[in-house]
Every structure is written in C-alpha cells, then in structure tokens.
Design a binder for these strands. Structure first.
Length: 559
RNA sequence: GCCCCGGUAGCUCAGUGGAUAGAGCGACCGCCUCCUAAGCGGUAGGUCGCAGGUUCGAUUCCUGCUCGGGGCACCA
C-alpha cells in the first residue's frame, strides 16, 4: 500500500521536477496518518522540496497533486497544513490485505528465502561457571528473537554460542569444586580465594564424586570421582554446568546451531595463525617484554597487549581469532548480542580485525548491547537466589512466571534501556499482562469459530473476500490498516535489530482486535457480512500467530 | 578524567525533523439475559532532565551542563 503510493509520487515527481536541477529524493516518506481527518496516508514530500525548488511548500504540493495519476487505490488527495499531501484510499482498497494474509498464511510478512545472505547471531555465550542469570535471559530472549526476525526478513541465520572452556575463570571453577569435594565450604580454612560460593558448586562436587556421566554439546564426560585430579574435575564441572545451562535454555525455547569452544581456537592453530598475521601486518610491537597490537591505528583509545610478559595470550587475541573464523565462514552480517558491560571490547575487536587487513568492513561485526535487568516483586528488588547466591537465575523466572511471559517481558523493551522486570505483573493472568492480552486475542478468534460450528453455521472464505468492502466500521478499518503494516514491521525490526517493535506491534494489533470484537458481532444472520467479518478475524489471528512465532511465544487456541 | 546507555504522565515504558506527544499499570466513572469480562468504553494525569544552537518547524539533530546505570587490567 505504502509502496504503491510511493510509486505514484515518484511518477508525479518526474513531471514536476522536469526541467529543474533538483534531483528526486531517493526516499519518499509516506506515513500512515495519525488522525483519520488527514486521510489514510500522508507525505511531507512538498515540504522537503520547497527549499531546493525555491517555492512555497503549498505551491509545490499543488504541482505534485496535479501531476498525480488519477484513479486506482486513491479516492481523494488533499493538501493540508503547511503542505502535507494526504491520501484518502478508495473504499475496500485497504481491506484487500485480508486476501493477501489468508492466501499467504504463515508466510505473510515473512521472507524465508535467505536471499539476503548468511547472517550469524552470537548470543548468551555465558562461561560455564554457574547457572544462567536474568541478564543472560535478556540476552537469550533478545538474541533468539533477533535471529527469528532476521530469518523472517530474508537472511540465512545461524545461532551461535561461544564459550570459554579454559582460562582463569575455569581454573577457579575447578579449584572451587575440588574444595567442595574435599568437604571444604566457603568460609572454611583452605577455601580458595575468590572461589565460587554458590550451592550449585556443591551439587557439581557431589555428582563428580558419584561418578556421574553428563552429556553436553554432543560430548559425554564421566566423572573420575578422584578429588585429587584437578584436570578431571575441571572437565567434568564444565560439562556439568554446560548441560545445566542448556536445560535452562531449552526450557526457554532457545536452541543454538553451533557451540564454539574457545579451546578449539588454540587446538586448531587459529590463535597462532592470527598472531602471525597480525605481526606480518606491521601493527605490532614489543615493549616491556610483552607483545602489543597498535589498536590505536584503528580508533581504539589505547594499544592492547597480545602476549603477556609471563607468556600466554590475553583474552582479546582468541576473540579476534574467533571473529576471523566467523568471517572466513562467510557470514556477511554478524550480530553479537552482549551485556552492556562488555562494550569496551568492541573497539579493540574491530581494531584487531582491521589490522588483519583481510577485507572485513569497518563496522563489522555489529553489536547489540542490552542494559541491566532489575527484578522486582511486591515493590522490592529481588536480589538473592538460593542456588546461585547473589543473583536471580533464568530458571527462577521461568519456573515462577512461565516461558511465554518471561520471553515477552525481556524482549518488549528496547535493549538500550534498563529493564525492570515486575514478577507480579508478569504472573498476572489478567489484562494487566500484555502477554495474555495478545494470546487472548488469538484464542478469541478460535472461540468465535468454535461457536460458529456449535451454531451449525459455516465459514465461506470466497464469500468473505467478496464482502470485504462492507467492513467499513471505524474499528474494522483501523484493524485492517494495522494488519497491512506487519510486513514492514518485520523488515524494520530486522534492519534496526530491534525485536521490541514486534512486541509493541502485537500489543497494538491485539488492542485493535479486542476493540473490533466488542464493537461488532461476528455471528450474525447477514451471511455475506458474517463471512467478511470472519475473514478479517481469521486474518488477524494469522498475523498474531506469525508475530508471536517471531517472539517465540505460543499462540493458544484456547485460554 | 575518558567511553557507552538512559532521563517522556504518579509507576513501567513506546514514539517522531512536522499538523492535538502515546500505551499499559495505578486512580476515578461506566459495561456480562449478548461470539471467553484473561475483555470493552470513558475521565483525570505532561514545561518530552536543563541551557544554547541548526531549521520554515526540534521532544526528535548538534554542543554544553546535570542526574542515574555500566565500562575503562599484561582478568575473561
């Protein structure tokens, strides 16, 4: 609809601008009018062209309108205010979207062609040193929705989880579990400094001593049950905690295509080859017995150490090697979803990749950073979890408010803003709760169709399509207009990496449907009108379903 | 000190270079002999943090300030 109007305007512009030196704008802004008085769509085109043309905006608008092709979907054009051009669509023009929706079904607004190329979303990437907390949950929800939205917008998407299975934190995990296995508890003499204190460490130790076998990421690890073998303890603890995280993610409806191990970067020589390439690039130097990368050549605020004085690489080197791998695997678009506390790493990773000089664009990879989550219950901040100690786990939330509500709440806000997660609101099974509100709209359509059957009536889609121009009530028109915006909403969400606008859209769509439901009865004697209204209801249900799928939230038939 | 994010209704948050800034919650007033009231309608509630600048037009873009959060390791 919008693009049809843009085409009309573009055609008109070739006439208006003929003979002038002013180029036609690349993009013509056409927006749905906020107020019905101003028609269905409006453009500010004349206002933007007034200055370059040196004419008053209203005169430009008049020239454009005079050049517009007559007829078609446009019934009336008006010039308003300082020079807005308002379009009033022909009766029934807007309603045609119902036909498109019901013909396309699950494919409406969704482009699964993958024609835009290979994209990767890396998210969660928690180190296996403990249970996932709310922050990881936000990352999981945002990352997973982003992957779904990109997939729906024509990208070929791979979801990846990167984890550190070596390094200091894992060493610390090993000694913490070992201490527990020897009966040493936090606070006791001999408890490792900075050891992980949560109760889950004791669970790992118990399982290790019992000789359990755990399977994680397609690898099975059997405990040696020997409290002296630190290597065995470490390997078991990593597998154990990875499995725990995986169970949580699965309960959250999140699955990954690839688990990438930091250790593999070393064993496969990727770290060494990256270091060699960086040295060859001429951007490295030795100082104070350490090897440095001159990341300041590429906009970082200070140079970074690659190889420490006492040997061994800093974390940043495998990070660069990892991203080289992503590039070499052919991902034209890579999105890293992380907590905002990691923002400092962005400049140096990009700098490292630029230094490689292997054709990686400057802004690659892209980052989506989410701000902190605060969990509230009964007006108080919730800080403690029995299992993990000092933070609220994702599992706590799923158990308490359910997967659907947790996902929705974590994704419904811009990731840029700090989020207050209100457990009481998320638990509420009332209209207070936007999740149920949207799901209820979907279930309501099913209820109408169940009633239709019980009354011995049937639905005739062809008759419904024929009656679409009779759906002229204000509530029907605003509902139909919203339905038509679903495809562009999906595209905008993917383009800007903003899954929250899908959540926002669905809330609006549900509201429009509930309004229509109350304003107009479906099961009426007028067969033609009944079929028309049912077609609209069915189309709404389809779009709700398509949209909820992008959020990973279920679309129940009955509530 | 430097870097990133935010400051919009009592609360939680959307939104936009334009025509009267929105939603939900909370408050108040209505609506079930009628397709699920997990719903609908209405009222009240705003100096869009402050000050400059750019613009025909700024809550939106720019600069400074201010408040809040996060980050500034030869840790990951």
């Amino acid at each position: 609809m919008k693009s049809q109007l843009q085409d009309l305007l573009r055609a008109a512009l070739t006439i208006v601008l003929d003979g002038s030196a002013v180029p036609a704008p690349a993009d013509i802004l056409v927006e749905p009018a906020k107020d019905k008085k101003n028609g269905d769509f409006a453009t500010n085109l004349a206002l933007t062209l007034a200055k370059p043309l040196g004419k008053p905006p209203r005169a430009v608008a008049e020239a454009i309108v005079a050049a517009l092709a007559q007829g078609g979907i446009v019934a009336k054009v008006e010039i308003a205010g300082p020079g807005f051009i308002n379009f009033f669509l022909a009766a029934g023009a807007l309603q045609q979207v119902v036909v498109d929706i019901l013909n396309a079904g699950a494919a409406f607004g969704i482009d699964r062609s993958g024609s835009k190329g290979k994209a990767m979303v890396e998210f969660v990437s928690a180190n296996p040193t403990g249970p996932l907390h709310v922050g990881h949950g936000r990352g999981a929800a945002v990352g997973d929705c982003m992957a779904r939205v990109l997939d729906a917008a024509g990208w070929q998407v791979s979801k990846e989880f990167y984890y550190n299975d070596a390094g200091n934190q894992i060493a610390n995990l090993g000694v913490s579990v070992q201490a527990r296995a020897k009966g040493i508890n936090p606070g006791d003499a001999g408890w490792p400094e900075d050891g992980y204190r949560g109760d889950y460490i004791a669970d790992v130790a118990t399982s290790y001593l019992a000789g359990d076998t755990v399977t994680a990421d397609d690898r099975a690890v059997t405990a040696k049950a020997d409290a002296e073998d630190l290597d065995a303890i470490r390997a078991f603890a990593v597998a154990y905690l990875r499995r725990e995280q995986d169970l949580d993610l699965r309960a959250f409806g999140v699955k990954f295509d690839v688990y990438y191990l930091e250790s593999s970067l070393y064993t496969e020589g990727k770290v060494d080859s990256t270091v060699t390439a960086l040295q060859a690039s001429g951007h490295t130097y030795e100082q104070d017995d350490a090897l440095w990368l001159r990341t300041t050549d590429f906009g970082d605020d200070k140079d970074r150490v690659m190889r420490k004085r006492e040997g061994g690489y800093t974390y940043f080197v495998p990070d660069v090697a990892y991203h080289v791998s992503k590039w070499q695997r052919g991902f034209v678009r890579v999105i890293n979803e992380q907590g905002a506390d990691h923002h400092g790493t962005i400049a140096r990773v990009r700098a490292g990749l630029q230094a490689m000089a292997i054709g990686i664009p400057k802004g690659w990879p892209e980052y989506v950073l989410h701000q902190m989550v605060t969990v509230m219950r009964a007006g108080e901040e919730v800080k403690l979890s029995k299992r993990a100690g000092s933070y609220v786990t994702l599992r706590d939330l799923i158990d308490e408010v359910g997967c659907d509500a947790t996902r929705y709440f974590l994704v419904a806000r811009k990731s840029d803003s700090q989020l207050i997660f209100d457990i009481d609101l998320a638990r509420a099974q009332t209209n207070d709760n936007p999740v149920y509100y949207i799901q209820y709209a979907h279930a309501r359509v099913s209820a109408v169709f169940r009633q239709l059957g019980e009354r011995g009536l049937s639905y005739d889609q062809a008759a419904g399509f024929a009656a679409l121009d009779r759906l002229s009530e204000a509530d029907a028109v605003s509902l139909v207009a919203l339905l038509g915006r679903f495809p562009e909403t999906v595209q905008a969400s993917a383009q800007n990496l903003e899954p929250h606008i899908i959540a926002q859209y669905l809330r609006d769509l549900a509201a429009a449907f509930h309004g229509y439901y109350h304003a107009v009865p479906f099961l009426i004697d007028d067969t033609s009108l009944r079929n028309g209204r049912l077609a609209l209801a069915l189309a709404t249900q389809q779009v709700l379903k398509n949209g909820l799928a992008l959020l990973g939230v279920s679309a129940p038939e009955k509530m």
